[in-house]
Structures are given as structure tokens and as C-alpha cells.
Write a protein that binds this DNA or RNA. Sequence first.
DNA 1: TAGATTGTTAATCGATTAACAATC
DNA 2: TAGATTGTTAATCGATTAACAATC
Lengths: 219, 219
Amino acid sequence: MQSTTLSKATLSRLPLYLQYVRTVEGSMISATIIARNLGLGEVQVRKDLRMISQAGQPKVGYPVQQLRWDLEMALGIHQKISAVIVGAGKMGTALMDYDGFHEYGLEITAAFDNHASQVPFRHGNMSIYAMSKLKSFCQQYDVHLGILTVPASAAQDAADQMVASGIAAILNFAPCHIRVPAHVIVQQMNVALSMAHLNLMVHQENKEQEETHYGKQIV
Amino acid sequence: MQSTTLSKATLSRLPLYLQYVRTVEGSMISATIIARNLGLGEVQVRKDLRMISQAGQPKVGYPVQQLRWDLEMALGIHQKISAVIVGAGKMGTALMDYDGFHEYGLEITAAFDNHASQVPFRHGNMSIYAMSKLKSFCQQYDVHLGILTVPASAAQDAADQMVASGIAAILNFAPCHIRVPAHVIVQQMNVALSMAHLNLMVHQENKEQEETHYGKQIV
DNA sequence: TAGATTGTTAATCGATTAACAATC
DNA sequence: TAGATTGTTAATCGATTAACAATC
């Protein structure tokens, strides 16, 4: 259990390691192999892993189970994390059905939408409430994370209500900037921009002619 | 029109600037104000903008229209970018309806799915083809970008077919690692991990006590 | 033992910030 | 002119890489 805080760069690579380690068969894994498969530097991987695990042994490598556990601990995945979805449109309901959440300790506790009637409506086993219920819900269940999936035109208004409800971090799927007070963290999930970014990289790549053997992974 | 390549760090902030600039009313905008609103350093913003625009003028700032145009140019948004969606489940169809794409010059040309019959099926105004059609389609229309939205269990197989079809960059929504050859770029879109990451930051933030006035934006 | 691996220390590289000059 | 801004050069900071020591 390390107490020194991880660097931002290291922290952003941990998910990659975890995802990879989860696919590994066999009982041991070495930093060398991880590095090769993810297209990263060997030393970088070793340094990163050293930050979050003591289980490495010369000549043998890391026990897969232990390393996986340590990565999950470092990412804070082992205690359940609660989050709400604001906006129950196409994207919102798709996320409600997303199977990847529970693998990462995440629990979507409820969804909220402007167009929900005052009476809770259900989608699968999840309740969709009216926006007016957001504040009391978040306070009652102590929820501080929110996923924002309303159209761009409604994003700022919805974000304001989330902030007023005690949400401390927002994952914003709306393709627009939202204004929030200093204590609130906003992370953009802009699919279109990610694609534009990828497109740029493809063009750059063509000029550079990469020589590594495995594909580059981006976080 | 700059020819020196932008640093990775700068490139990753351009989307943020563009998103913000698009919300600005009035004809001029200063780096100072942008910095304050996005929670970034003044000098950093100035340096970034200098890389992609010549339009800055002392005492006045940047003309909003021109800056916006320059940002869009730098991000390569002005020529149409074509992409395919592989996996027409909940997430895939939600993305087909996503309104944010065209704002960023992105055009989803078609979707592909294992369960599509051999006869094209339509969703809105978009065709969903069988996976077997992927290669010929990508080659005919010269598409090199793909969004992967199949379940984790089918991700590797689908990715292999995308690579075989000439896709050069994959935006992967499946919460798992996929193996690709060196020339292919993979970007993860892991919503669950983004949330875990946000959760960590919220806890750190509580310890640090930030003093900036505007909320922190993350790319 | 030799080889493969982990882990650390020092050097390099890249990005941010600070200080200042230039300009309308 | 004075003030607000852009822009640049130098200093600092952080992250990566290279070289090497330690170990089963």
C-alpha cells in the first residue's frame, strides 16, 4: 500500500495495464511482455508497476493475480463507486445497459431526465426520475459522480443542477464546454473530437513510419 | 498555416479551446479570459494559440471567428472525415444518432454488425451491413477510421476484421484490451475507467484544496 | 553459473512557468 | 501616455530513457 501519490502520467497508464493484465492467462507476467504488448517502454512499465505493487520478483516477474489486485486497489476500484446518469436519451439509456461498469466497481444508481414524469419510470432494473428529484437523491444516497448525456443545448442547465445537487465530478458527453465552480471537475467525453484526433494521428503516422512491432495504445 | 508539428500536450488542449471558443459571444477574445475559464495557465494558452494562429493582437486579443477557424484547421476538422461503426447494439445505435459528429467534420458512413442479415438494414438514414461487407466497403469508400462498439467478448475478433479491412485507427468502446499490428492506433473509450479516474481525483482534490476560481477541465 | 528479470540512480528530453520585451 | 494584451527567452519542473546494480 503506497502512500506517495502517483504521478499523473503513471495514473493514466494504470487502466491500460489493468485491462491488459485481465486478459493474461497463466500465473506470472513480466513487465517486459506487458511493455511489448502495449507498445510502451520497458523501464516505464517497471517504474509504474513498482509504484503500485511490491510483488515483482527478479527472474520471475509479477504474479498475475496479485498484480491485478494491486492495480485495482490503486485505481480505487474495490470499493463500490456510485454515480447517476443525467439525460435518459439514446446515449443515456445505452450507458444504463453498458456491461463494463460493474467490472470497474461502478454502480449507476439512478437516471434523471427532464421529460420523465414525476412518477419514476423504469428502464431495465433502473429507475428514471424527474430532474427535480436529483438533489434529494444525491444527498440521500451520498452520490458525487455524474454522467451527463443530455443534448448540447441542455447541458449547461443540467450541469448547474448537478452542481447544486452536490455532484463533484461530471463526465460530459455533450459536445460543448460547460461552466462549473472551481471545486467541480469536468471530464469531456467527446467522441467526435477523439475521432478527429485519431484522424490527425493517422496522417502523422504515415509520415513518420513507425517501427515498433505492436500497436500503439492511447488512454 | 504552421508547418512545425504541434506538441502532444498542445494538441490535446486544442479541442478544449475550440469547444470554449464556440460558446463565446462578441467579436474578440483574449487568452487571459480563455485561461481563466478553462482553469489553465495564461502563458500556456498564449503559447498554444500562437502555434495555430497568427491573429493575436496586443491589447485586443484574438478575433473570435478567426481563432475558431484556425483551431478547426489545426484539428483537421474542415475536410470531411469518414468513419464506420462496428457493432450496432445499444451503444452503436446511440452513436449513429449522436448529433455532435457533424460539428467536428465527422461523417459516419455505415455501420456493420454480425447479426445483420446479408440484406442491408437501415437505422434512421444509415445502413447496417453484415460484417462480411466491411472490407469491400472500406476499400471502396476509402475509410480508415472505425468505432468499435461490440461486447468485450467479440471485440478482438471484430478488431481483427477491421484491421484486415484497412482501418488504421480504432476508437474502442469495449472495456478490454485489443491486440493490433504496429501500424494501427487504438484509443480506448472506457466510460467505467473514466469514472474511476474521476472518483480518484475527487478524493485527491478534497485533500489538496484547490484555490483557482474556475473548474478544472480535463481532456 | 548464466540469463532473465526487477529495481534504482543519473542523464536526457519535453512541457510548464516565470520574467520580460514588444505592441496597439 | 498608461494599461492591457501578445509574444519570446530563460528557468524550472516533471516525465522518460539510459545505464547499471541487485536478485532469484
